[in-house]
Design a protein around this nucleic acid. Structure first.
Length: 683
RNA sequence: GGCGAGGUAGCUCAGUCGGUUAGAGCACAGGCUUCAUAAGCCUGGGGUCGCGGGUUCGAGUCCCGCCCUCGCUACCA
């Protein structure tokens, strides 16, 4: 096989937070792929870097009272340390705030300019006069400008309440979340890239070849490529932590412009250190470029990024591999439940090999989310790795410790050959990122090896002095079957491969090591390779993850352990209101006397409320995700009785039922205490 | 509503080009073994392959319709 030249990247982690197990799905997935390619003898290189620019970094550095450079240096060191703990090995780990990256940004920018893709537009943006900075949409909050909604405390881009989309400038009574100041509207000129001019190219590139998983190609086709591509705003006015645009002083490249260029920047750092030529990696037909990313950043990597590369004359990716998110026990990672687990927290309690193996067993070539069920995690690791794989060595090595393996590989009934024969099948699964399939195939080999040992009963041979050669042969076979498995698992479990090399006196260096058995090397003393998952350590890890996000407080509230998430999501409004404002809203106790599903509505239920007597209100409430109509009938709720009637697609809504919570699966209706009667006013 | 992915054993999933009696792991039950990290081996129970129709000698697999779940997106709150 001719060696391929392969350049691999994983998405750049943002320098504003620590690595957590959700991130690790990607870095482990990628690391396995890279190790596999290297083991196959290909010239494969793995590049990554910290993504360091943007408003969030600037603000945080300001809050911490130190320069951005210091903040990102610290975070980079933490990231590198975390990756190391999980045996994630980069050929270079750079930073987007490097000279190399700046140089490449300028080069690419020049090409984009030269291609006539840049235009300027004046846009109005809110400016925080106290903080002295323009405000991104997320940094402005105010009252929803939709007159029929007027929900307070909404972000600058859209209203959580009514879904109204707006510009931050349209918000009523806007406040900067940085300083609390009232922002003022200022005009600024931004630079845009007209990627519509590359529409034909993008349509062709995304839909042809095998560059993208089919579901991704379809998604782009349906959501973006069916219409005109909007100009991409790539500049931000000062102050902004990033690179100043040379031909537009006072403006900086938006973080999403220089972040992917960081892939090339990191490569360049490596080239300069290793005496390599960048063009051999980024301008060569000989090199395949593979990006691994999460589904949340699909659009940057499949539209803007290819457009930039194409324009600047760099190679296009051979493939963008997109994976889903990680859930824990079937739910989104949650700080309050302790399932938002930092990489460093995990590593303090549990063996990183477990996680590498577990993720591998769950990963496929599709964009599906993967679930870390802690119960399954333990069961899989204990049963597969300890019970099956390591056990093969553990139950045979000690019988020939300190002695050589048989000088010629004995007759094993074709077992080793069978294992060698599936080499390409397993390789293909790794190549296609179908690690789950690879792992299943490998476990079949482990089952067969254990059956073999059972049949040969080496523990009986040991007691018969006339059968010592038979014992040696049996153990030589078992240990070679074990080694074959260790070779196949080496991309996933590099430590196990190293330990196997130690034990059998010959390091595992190449995928083809699984093709020929070892003979004559001396077997070392068997040492424990992997412990079972200690459930107490899992629990301790969860416990620590809870503490990290909800520090114990001394006050009386501590006993309730109420986390800050709700307030963080919807901070208290700065602006006071008067009693008159409160009185304006007429809230009443009401009884649900009828509740129905609404045909065609995904979130709505239709409620008929009684305010006592014969006063009825028809109300549509967006609570379908949490309540069954039959459970609602008869119960008391609080409703806003003087909300202006609103015509909706399904009918007229004559009020609003009060509920709290972030939405989705968490909506909680307000419930008056016993004794309340329909019609009573809430004061 | 639109687009996409799914629905196979209690759980997690495999099932190739349509081909014999639909499989594995875990869990469960019984037995064997006692070398191994309370590991291993054997046997067993357990299935309307989401539902209905169609094509075919033959459908988990192909076609049509429907139901449900998940993701994205829109409407809406």
């Amino acid at each position: 096989m001719n060696p391929r030249q392969i350049l691999v990247t994983a998405a750049l982690p943002y320098a504003n937070g620590h690595i957590h197990i959700g991130h690790l799905v990607e870095y482990i997935q990628t690391d396995i792929w890279v190790r596999f390619q290297k083991l196959r003898g290909h010239n494969c290189r793995y590049f990554c870097a910290d993504d360091t620019h943007g408003t969030a970094i600037m603000i945080r550095a300001r809050q911490e009272g130190r320069p951005e450079e210091e903040l990102i240096a610290d975070m980079r060191a933490a990231h590198v340390a975390d990756f190391g703990k999980f045996d994630i090995e980069f050929d270079n780990y750079g930073s987007t705030n490097s000279d190399q990256n700046r140089q490449l940004c300028e080069q690419i920018w020049t090409s984009i300019r030269a291609a006539g893709l840049v235009n300027e537009k004046e846009i109005e943006q809110l400016y925080d006069p106290e903080a002295g900075t323009f405000l991104a949409d997320r940094f402005v909050k105010g009252t929803c400008p939709n007159p029929e909604c007027s929900a307070p405390n909404q972000y600058g881009d859209s209203c959580d309440k009514c879904g109204h989309t707006h510009s931050p400038a349209e918000l009523i009574a806007p406040k900067s979340t940085l300083s609390g100041a009232t922002p003022e509207l200022r005009k600024a000129t931004h630079l845009f890239v007209q990627i519509e001019k590359l529409h034909d190219f993008l349509a062709e590139w995304t839909q042809s070849g095998q560059h993208l998983q089919t579901e991704v190609a379809n998604y782009l086709k349906g959501h973006f490529l069916g219409q005109e591509l909007r100009d991409w705003d790539v500049s931000r006015p000062a102050p902004y932590f990033g690179f100043e645009i040379p031909d537009a002083k006072g403006n900086y490249w938006y973080v999403w412009f220089d972040a992917p260029i960081g892939y090339i920047g990191s490569t360049l750092e490596w080239c300069q250190r290793e005496g390599e030529n960048l063009a051999d990696w980024w301008n060569s037909e000989q090199t395949e470029i593979h990006h691994f990313i999460g589904k949340d950043i699909t659009y940057f990597h499949t539209l803007f990024w290819p457009a930039m590369l194409k324009t600047a004359g760099f190679s296009l990716p051979e493939k963008v591999h997109i994976h889903g998110f990680l859930t824990v026990d079937g739910e989104k990672m949650s700080k309050s439940k302790g399932t938002f687990i930092a990489a460093s927290t995990y590593a303090r309690h549990l063996d990183p090999s477990y996680l590498r193996y577990f993720f591998a067993s769950k990963l496929s070539s599709r964009v599906d989310d993967i679930d870390l069920s802690l119960e399954e995690f333990k069961a899989k690791v204990d049963s597969d790795l300890v019970g099956k794989v390591v056990n093969i060595a553990s139950r045979t090595a000690k019988f020939i410790a300190g002695q050589p393996l048989s000088a010629a590989y004995p007759d094993d009934g074709g077992l080793f050959a069978q294992g060698a024969a599936v080499s390409e099948k397993i390789a293909e699964a790794f190549e296609n990122c179908d690690y789950g399939a690879a792992v299943r195939e490998i476990m079949v080999l482990a089952d067969r090896a254990n059956q073999f040992i059972e049949a040969r009963e080496p523990w009986k041979l040991r007691k018969d002095e006339t059968r010592q050669e038979e014992l040696r042969d049996t153990c030589s076979i078992a240990l070679n079957l074990f080694r074959q498995i260790a070779v196949y698992l080496a991309p996933v479990l590099p430590r196990l491969a190293a330990q196997t090399g130690e034990l059998l006196g010959s390091p595992i260096q190449h995928w083809s090591d699984a093709q020929s058995p070892l003979t004559g090397t001396e077997v070392g003393q068997f040492q424990h390779m992997l412990n079972r998952v200690d459930i107490q350590k899992v629990e301790a890890m969860i416990e620590e993850s809870k503490e990290a996000s909800a520090p114990a407080t001394e006050d009386a509230a501590a006993q309730y352990n109420d986390g800050p998430e709700a307030l963080e999501k919807e901070p208290l409004v700065a602006e006071n209101c008067s009693i008159d404002d409160v009185v304006k809203v007429d809230m009443r106790v009401a009884r649900v006397i009828e509740a129905n599903h609404v045909e065609g509505a995904d979130k709505l239920l239709q409620l008929t409320l009684s305010l006592g007597g014969d006063v009825r209100r028809n109300v549509f409430a967006g609570i379908k995700s949490c309540y069954n109509p039959e459970d609602l009938v008869g119960r008391l709720v609080i409703c806003c009785a003087n909300l202006a009637p609103r015509k909706m697609r399904f009918g007229i809504s004559e009020g609003m039922v009060l509920a709290c919570g972030p939405g989705g699966k968490e909506i909680f209706l307000l419930n008056p205490d016993d004794g309340a009667q329909p019609g009573m006013r809430v004061h």
